[in-house]
Write a protein that binds this DNA or RNA. Sequence first.
DNA 1: ATGCCTTTGTGAACGCGTGCACAAAGATAC
DNA 2: GTATCTTTGTGCACGCGTTCACAAAGGCAT
Lengths: 283, 283
Amino acid sequence: MATGRPHRPTTRARGIPEATVARLPLYLRALTALSERSVPTVSSEELATAAGVNSAKLRKDFSYLGSYGTRGVGYDVEYLVYQISRELGLTQDWPVVIVGIGNLGAALANYGGFASRGFRVAALIDADAAMAGRPVAGIAVQHIDELESIIADNGVSIGVIATPAGAAQQVCERLVAAGVTSILNFAPTVLTVPDGVDVRKVDLSIELQILAFHEQRKAGEAAAAPDITDMVTPVAPPVAATRRRADDAPVRPVVDGAARHGAGDAGSGPDGSDGGRSAAMPA
Amino acid sequence: MATGRPHRPTTRARGIPEATVARLPLYLRALTALSERSVPTVSSEELATAAGVNSAKLRKDFSYLGSYGTRGVGYDVEYLVYQISRELGLTQDWPVVIVGIGNLGAALANYGGFASRGFRVAALIDADAAMAGRPVAGIAVQHIDELESIIADNGVSIGVIATPAGAAQQVCERLVAAGVTSILNFAPTVLTVPDGVDVRKVDLSIELQILAFHEQRKAGEAAAAPDITDMVTPVAPPVAATRRRADDAPVRPVVDGAARHGAGDAGSGPDGSDGGRSAAMPA
DNA sequence: ATGCCTTTGTGAACGCGTGCACAAAGATAC
DNA sequence: GTATCTTTGTGCACGCGTTCACAAAGGCAT
């Protein structure tokens, strides 16, 4: 689920499960907060609550890092902060480049969460020549022609892609060719990368769609008692339904003669509109 | 992994596994692209490649929705687009509110991917009175005092939180109290919500930290042959290491002897700075 | 019709992640 | 030193998700 790359046995990371790695930043954040309040130690129970996870899970996660706790007492906050930081590689400096300085790219450049954890924005890169030189978040935007030299000069190994979907794959390839081996992709596209390159994807639209699914289910459950199992339609949500798409039904997937599972509702409408739905790419 | 909520048997969704739901938007996107190119049918193999997944997984995913394919032929593109859209609840209109119109909030408001899939930005809300009335992405920002009435008037059930971490929980509670039952959280905090409310979290900082972990591991493997297993330190990455934090070692977590961790952090590494490490919240 | 060829749909095996429950370890009190 | 109490670390079992591999289904040619 992590990387967008197809093939790969996943984990393997010196024994630390991927799921655990994904939670370490969470623990680290909670621990940092405790550290600031000068709390010396925490129990797994307290910390788990703060991080929003199960205490058994937390203990098991920590057990992969080593035995850093003290039975009968708990974990030393400062010590754990250090250990987790080290494990995550946050004790060193990670220069990153952001490619695509649109609304999202600019927001990322201004994002305080980066700098606070060892990530340094080494450069902002955009394909628009008009952007070049313009300062964003105190950093002058550079033209994409300089991409290769920027990466080489700064020893950048992590790249952030915030371009439109259409440009993402191309930018990705240039980043990889220039030496980047980790990519955080905000463009709504599946990136194809060679083995050895990690890709993580953040897709705002997908997150909303997943929420919509659950929302629909909730509405459907609460509203009416469904008759047929096939009748998945949520029975009109409680909210004002405005834009309802081409109301009609599923076209017939049948290749042959008879129209089979037209099941849905009316007989297919010519939803010519559907084809016009823009793939509308982001920022 | 999905919701931020602790307790819950997960799935249950009328048989459709959570993991499958999370992939449906991916399939939908690939299908939409095909639809625009007027491709009539696709095989599971082709579609899987386009979506970046395994074909067997894709077929199993679709099998949860029903038998929408034709053996020997493949899947009817238009029909599948409709079915998945319906399953995800995208055939209806979902008004959303975005709370916190900073850099990120503004970027989200401008994000094209929302409108293209049935999501309509019903309102932009900010706590800063100076923002009120100012247009962002063509929509006038409204003050947070209006939050409850906005949600009620527009029948909003999905809220997006893009506030600083400190305000997130409070905003969350107001949203939920006002009737919102699905939340997309961009603030780096663990949100606590009552049962029945879904939360999805997007944390930019965490994604980067996960990448850093893998990056470090790659560097460590490639660079030197580690002596002791304890020696996890990646042996200086190929990049210019600048900021290396307190180079020294882990404090000792021992509870006994020394009156240790009163530790503003005097004892430990010299990094008095560490304590000052801002929890630095984002946009 | 009959047979061949393609692709779906799914039964079954496997592996990872989660959570329970408890023994081991250490601190603390006496 | 001994007993008690707290909290960690983990063995174990369970369930979800992934993948393989194949039989069933349908199109298409003859």
